[in-house]
Design a protein around this nucleic acid. Structure first.
Lengths: 98, 98
DNA sequence: TCCATATTTCCATTATCGTCGAATTATGAA
DNA sequence: TTCATAATTCGACGATAATGGAAATATGGA
């Protein structure tokens, strides 16, 4: 993973509504959730949620598939794993081996 | 760690110059580096670096001690470990055990 | 085709971020 | 005390982010 991707991924997660969205999707699991359901459950305006979903998707943290009229969003666990590995790899210096 | 601290820490790292500063400090190790030395080695204006150091310090990612006229900055490895543990704890769902 | 639903894009507004020169504060040495 | 060095704070600027109403796009059903 390039450093610019790391910065983008961290920036995507470094916003309260987006981290709520992401964790909600993590809790929902691999089968994902529709955008509308997310908007209702998190109390976000559709346009606002769409903006944040785009950010998370652009960073590679979530995937999107269509199911009928709905767009289903789910976490990209592999990307998250890569991001965490990068942080562990560069920040741990022995003292903080996991 | 509170979620607001997580957001603050991620936001602090989600900026190219700040991640450069942080990783430079990580590489320098626990003995740390003076602000002026950091500024020179990273090619940053003193005021700019000071701004970023304040952000990192406020997030708890680095510590600061005075040594004569110089202020020495060093990574806070414990904080980093806590942050990584939070991410692992909340995002891993079995698929991505480290 | 026409309509309803789901979501995104567009737009404007407000707030915050990143930058750096200049001024200020803090420390140490003569 | 006076000066030099180290770093921060101040001030201003341009750039980007966050928000949500309104309009546009996409899909499916009648």
């Amino acid at each position: 993973m390039e450093i610019v991707n790391v910065v983008n991924s961290l920036a995507a997660l470094a916003q309260e509504n987006r981290i709520r969205v992401f964790r909600h999707l993590v809790q929902a699991g691999p089968q994902g959730l529709a955008a509308g359901q997310l908007a209702e459950e998190l109390g976000l305006a559709a346009a606002t949620l769409s903006f944040h979903l785009k950010e998370l998707k652009h960073a590679g943290l979530i995937n999107c598939t269509r199911k009928g009229r709905s767009l289903i969003y789910a976490p990209n666990f592999e990307h998250m794993q890569t991001l965490i590995n990068f942080l562990l790899e560069n920040c741990c210096c022995g003292e903080c081996s996991s």
